[in-house]
Design a protein around this nucleic acid. Structure first.
Length: 578
RNA sequence: CGGGGCGUAGCGCAGCCUGGUUAGCGCGCCUGCCUUGGGAGCAGGAGGUCGGAGGUUCGAAUCCUCUCGCCCCGACCA
């Protein structure tokens, strides 16, 4: 490709709308342009990078035995009503009516459509396992789209769905996908980690997220840092559990409940300072609205409620923290003094509370707290479970190691769905004994456009993008520094053509621009290798080959450049494909 | 939806508080000269419903009301 013919509108300055680095660089490097909030046009280079990721995904999915197909974007409401998600999915599902007033939606995910397709066409266990995937534009009307391609409303996703006759088969398929995902992100040249995750709106029993490690990640990961990674426990903070709390030994005796005046002390820090105790000796009473109904949640003073865990325990669609007025309306107690003793709304407790003795709680009236409260003696709760967020210093649930935290970008998510969808849509086939069975399903997503953004988050410097070799739009750029000079131009063309003949994707910068502009532009767009044909060639017939990532530069005769690059590129690709 | 901020040329911004003739600056773009190994220089030029509607006023980018859009923090998620 010749730069002079390419739509590649680079920007010198950072667009005001872009905050995170991948967003800034994607805009500056002329890869994307925004149409409206969360909706982007992919320009030729942006699309080229996406196509690279798609191709790797395709190869690895096919290698793992999956088949590619393409499902409709527009989907009838009836199917979603059948699965129950027309009501459950919420406003993220973009709904509309067609000219006949039929309700429809834009597909945010395709469990319904694929399950319908399979139930209509697969009737025997002999056809299983079946693993189908597509690479397609998805639309989710996100509450808050942001960070360019990181969280768009319209984005490109690979979504795959598997169908097995039984749980064992589904586990084998899940494992295959787990391995395929490792290969995919390795081949993309990314540093990533698979973590245990919450299943979210997709539902199902078990899942892993694939996280690209980057500071700008929206997710927090808890990783066990036991020696040499032996344990390997890693989980999304939404899911991460600490080691189970141990009761004190010997058993601490319960002291008499005592009411104390704590005037104006509402926050944990204020109460504990006033009473001269540690936050670990206090239990806070948080009020949530679970699907609109008030509920008190007890956690230790130094802990925070993990809302996803709470939601899962309650089986609620939505939980949100109540405000002061809602707390007072529901309990008759002003916020800050609410406690579980004598409370008039249901209470659930974090499991830590069960092993605590003689703790401080709100007094149930303004300006009072209670000392020496104890679960079972002074109050009861409806449910006890793991409801808190793990914190630094918590120990791994599997081994004794400490947990540490890091930020990640979710680029892939795999789920064991079980029979949730096949039952809802009554999708069955016959097993070897002629019995009707619901398909045991799995689903497997990769954010293709997000993967490109994540790669940039992880690979850039002050001058621009530094593409990993497998997903770069061009592997080499040839700079013709003197388009007016016949000899230099013909030399640049020679390298360019030589590389093209070898099947290397190469960009020839043949623009009539000053050298500085060319250097800046090609640094910005992040092509791994640059060949400069300029005054060096005029002097002694040499060209300069420079590596984008480390800036290492070598000068060599023109004739050697193509072979040199070919060898380097092959070596790098081989390492990643390893 | 709650909280914060912003809409003036393709991009980045000033002007607005305190209303006053042809609305500015830098970059980019076009023409010419010149220059050619890290975003040069000179000269000339094109490009604007000041997000939109309504109002106040002799007069509105500027003041008021409404509205639309965008960005950031939270709930959502590939």
């Amino acid at each position: 490709m010749r730069y002079s013919q390419l739509l590649l509108p680079t920007l010198k300055e950072n667009p005001a709308e872009a905050e995170v680095v991948s967003h800034r660089l994607l805009l500056r490097a002329g890869f994307i342009r925004k149409l409206t909030s969360g909706v982007y046009s992919y320009l030729p280079l942006g699309l080229a990078a996406i196509r690279k990721v798609e191709q790797i995904v395709r190869e690895e999915m096919n290698r793992a035995g999956a088949q590619e197909l393409l499902l409709p974007v527009v989907q009838p409401a009836d199917l979603w009503k059948e699965s129950g998600r027309w009501e459950k999915y919420g406003p993220e599902l973009l709904r509309f009516k067609d000219r006949h007033n039929r309700e429809s939606c834009l597909g945010p995910t395709h469990e319904e459509v694929i399950t319908d397709l399979v139930r209509m066409n697969v009737h025997s266990y002999r056809s299983l396992p079946l693993n189908l995937y597509q690479i397609q534009t998805k639309f989710r009307d996100e509450i808050r789209p942001r960070f360019g391609l990181m969280r768009g409303r319209e984005f490109i996703m690979k979504d795959g769905y598997s169908f097995d006759i039984d749980e064992d088969g589904a586990n084998v398929t899940y494992r295959k996908m787990y391995d395929a995902y490792h290969r995919i992100f390795s081949r993309c040249g990314l540093s990533f980690r698979a973590v245990e995750a919450d299943t979210g709106t997709i539902g199902g029993s078990f899942s892993h997220e694939f996280m690209v490690l980057a500071e700008t990640g929206e997710d927090t990961l808890a990783i066990c840092k036991s020696d040499d990674d032996k344990c390997g426990y890693a989980a999304n903070l939404e899911k991460a559990a600490g080691a189970a709390p141990q009761p004190a030994e010997p058993e601490v005796e319960m002291l008499p409940l005592e009411k104390v005046e704590t005037p104006g002390k509402r926050k944990v820090v204020a109460v504990t300072a006033f009473l001269d105790i540690s936050p670990k000796q206090l239990v806070k009473t948080m009020v949530y609205l679970a699907d609109g109904k008030p509920l008190a949640v007890l956690v230790r003073g130094d802990h925070e409620v993990q809302e996803v865990k709470l939601k899962n325990m309650l089986g609620a669609v939505d939980v949100e923290l109540a405000d002061d007025k809602q707390i007072f309306d529901a309990t008759g107690v002003p916020s800050g003094y609410l406690g579980p003793v004598g409370i008039r709304i249901p209470v659930v407790a974090d499991r830590e509370i069960a092993v605590m003795r003689n703790f401080v709680v709100g007094g149930g009236e303004k300006n009072y707290h209670l000392l020496n409260a104890n679960l079972g003696r002074d109050f009861e709760v409806e449910q006890i479970g793991d409801l808190r967020e793990v914190t630094a210093g918590d120990h791994c649930p599997r081994c004794s190691g400490e947990l540490e935290f890091t930020k990640g970008i979710e680029v892939g998510h795999i789920f064991k769905l079980g029979t949730a969808y096949s039952e809802a849509l009554n999708a069955t086939c016959l097993d070897g004994k002629g019995r009707e069975k619901h398909f045991v399903m799995g689903c497997y997503g990769i954010g293709v456009s997000r993967t490109v953004a994540a790669a940039i988050e992880q690979n850039h410097d002050k001058d621009g993008i530094i593409f990993p070799m497998p997903i770069t739009p061009f592997k080499v750029v040839v700079l013709n520094l003197s388009p007016d000079d016949k000899e230099i131009t013909s030399a640049a063309e020679q390298v360019y053509n030589g590389l093209r003949e070898q099947g290397i994707e190469v960009l020839l910068d043949d623009r009539d621009e000053r050298p500085g502009i060319k250097f800046k532009d090609v640094d910005l767009i992040g092509i791994p290798y640059r060949v400069t044909v300029g005054k060096g060639f005029a002097k002694d017939g040499t060209v300069e080959v420079r590596e984008r990532r480390h800036g290492r530069t070598e000068t060599m005769p023109l004739a050697e450049a193509a072979a040199f690059l070919l060898e380097r590129i092959d070596r790098e690709m081989a390492t990643l494909n390893g």
